[in-house]
Every structure is written in C-alpha cells, then in structure tokens.
C-alpha cells in the first residue's frame, strides 16, 4: 500500500473529504441502480408467475 496506515489512507493528505465523498456518493449511486434493476426483474417475474397461474386456473375451469 502507498499509505503507511489506514488513518493516512482515510485522510489522504488534505484531500480525504473530497476523494471519499466522491467515491461514497458514486458507488452508492451505482449500487442503487444495479439493485433497482435486479429488483424490477424479480418483481416482473413474480407478477408474471401470478398472472400465468391465474390463467392456468381459468383454463382448467
């Protein structure tokens, strides 16, 4: 590691607040976006499962 300790890595000279806030905000945005995509996929699958099950029930009746 370039820094001697994790405290120094956190401080980054005087630039810690800039670097870590940028990384924090942006990584959170990325994770949120990926999470939303996965959640939407699961929701659509769940909804489709329900719709299709209902259709099959109706077909049987």
């Amino acid at each position: 590691m370039y820094f001697d300790s994790f405290a120094e890595l956190w401080q980054m000279g005087v630039h810690g607040p800039f670097v870590w806030s940028a990384f924090g905000i942006c990584v959170a945005l990325i994770l949120l976006n990926v999470g939303v995509a996965v959640y939407q996929g699961r929701r659509v699958r769940r909804d489709l499962k329900r719709i299709i099950r209902r259709q099959i029930m109706q077909e049987k009746q």
Partner: peptide, 9 residues
C-alpha cells in the same frame, strides 16, 4: 496530491 484519485471513478 491525492485528490487525483477521483480519476479512477
């Protein structure tokens, strides 16, 4: 200094 590390994002 270290502020350039934002480049990696």
């Amino acid at each position: 200094g270290n502020s350039y590390r934002i480049i990696y994002l």
